[in-house]
């Protein structure tokens, strides 16, 4: 029997965590608790997706960010001793999880990509060395904690008519209110093209020599019916493409039928965002590029030679 807590930040990530949670709990029995914001919006849905209990976090004063819940969650976890706590590997999740783990003096598997029971223990896999290797860890302390890479686990099939207990946690005790205040919030621009819905995604990487060469990638993408995305350096350092097209950790995660990385080396920060693709393909001139270790099909060759040939082949 295991008690599993899920911290709910976004709808998508919560569904995926519930998918993983149910898989884990079904093996050993136990219950799933979802911790969510005070408005409890969508909690009926969480019941259908497998939550046995909903915990509403106390309302936060204006200007406080979600991270302000850390002391409350930590206090509750210290008292109730859940066996497992899962958070999404979103930016917030990746800040909150280690801080919670530190307060609970426990181990945390960051950005986990696979989970399994082994004997009575949970083992998790994570990607290390920029995508070149997989590290498998087991936990020597409780609770077991992990942040889970987006699009790694599928949402469970909802069961109508399930219900979940509801309770609330007490507000922040005096002296535990953090000093961090939000003074401004800007929504990122939404683009007409939505990478997350695309069936085919072509990602441009550092292998591109100049901005103008994106035209080549665009032409190729249009022929395979795909949208163009990119790795972080292209959007955040070179500013060749808008931030919204940046794929990976702290960018968007995609789950298309086909992902093609063009001049993408395959760093973990990027590949985490495409792990869910049905087929991963790559074009890269370096045979040892980590992307080939994570791809189904790959052309080993210069993209400036390969793309024109691909374009010709596709036009036929």
């Amino acid at each position: 029997m295991a008690v599993l807590w899920i911290f709910s930040e976004t709808t998508t990530s919560t569904k995926e965590l519930l998918g993983l949670g149910r898989e884990l709990i079904s093996a050993v029995g136990g219950s799933i608790t979802v911790l969510m914001g005070p408005d409890g919006e969508g909690r009926e849905e969480w019941a259908a997706y497998g939550a046995d209990e909903i915990i509403l976090l106390p309302p936060l004063a204006d200007g406080l960010a979600m991270e302000a819940h850390i002391p409350v969650i930590a206090a509750a976890a210290a008292e109730e001793k859940p066996d497992i706590i899962l958070l999404p590997a979103t930016a917030r999740g990746r800040e909150m999880a280690p801080r919670l783990a530190q307060r609970l003096d426990t181990g945390l598997c960051s950005n986990c990509v696979a989970v399994r029971w082994s004997g009575g223990d949970i083992e998790m896999d994570r990607v290390v060395y920029g995508g070149a290797a997989i590290q498998t860890v087991k936990f020597l302390t409780r609770p077991v904690m992990a942040t889970v890479a987006p699009k790694t686990f599928s949402p469970p099939v909802p069961e109508e008519g399930r219900s979940a207990r509801l309770r609330e946690l007490p507000p922040l005790a005096a002296g535990t209110v953090p000093g961090v205040r939000i003074v401004e919030k800007r929504e990122k621009r939404r683009l007409a093209r939505d990478l997350t819905q695309a069936k085919v995604v072509v990602a441009a990487g550092r292998g591109l020599e100049k901005k103008e060469d994106l035209a080549l990638v665009e032409e190729f993408a249009s022929l395979v019916g795909g949208e163009v995305g990119c790795t972080r350096p292209l959007s955040e350092e070179l500013h060749w493409l808008p931030t919204e097209l940046c794929i990976g950790l702290s960018g968007v995660s995609v789950k298309p039928d086909l992902y093609i990385g063009v001049g993408v080396s395959g760093q973990v920060q990027h590949m985490t965002g495409v792990r869910g693709a049905k087929v991963i393909a790559a074009v890269n001139r370096d045979e040892n590029a980590p992307i080939f270790a994570q791809a189904d099909l790959g052309i080993v060759g210069d993209l400036y030679e390969a793309l024109p040939k691909l374009i010709t082949a596709l036009k036929k």
Binding site: A101, L108, V127, A132, T136, K138, L140, I280, Q294
Partner: peptide, 15 residues
């Protein structure tokens, strides 16, 4: 340690 590393192996098992 709170975590124990059981193995580190080259990536790309499943694909």
């Amino acid at each position: 340690p709170r975590l124990q590393t059981l193995a580190v192996r080259a990536a790309a098992m499943e694909r």
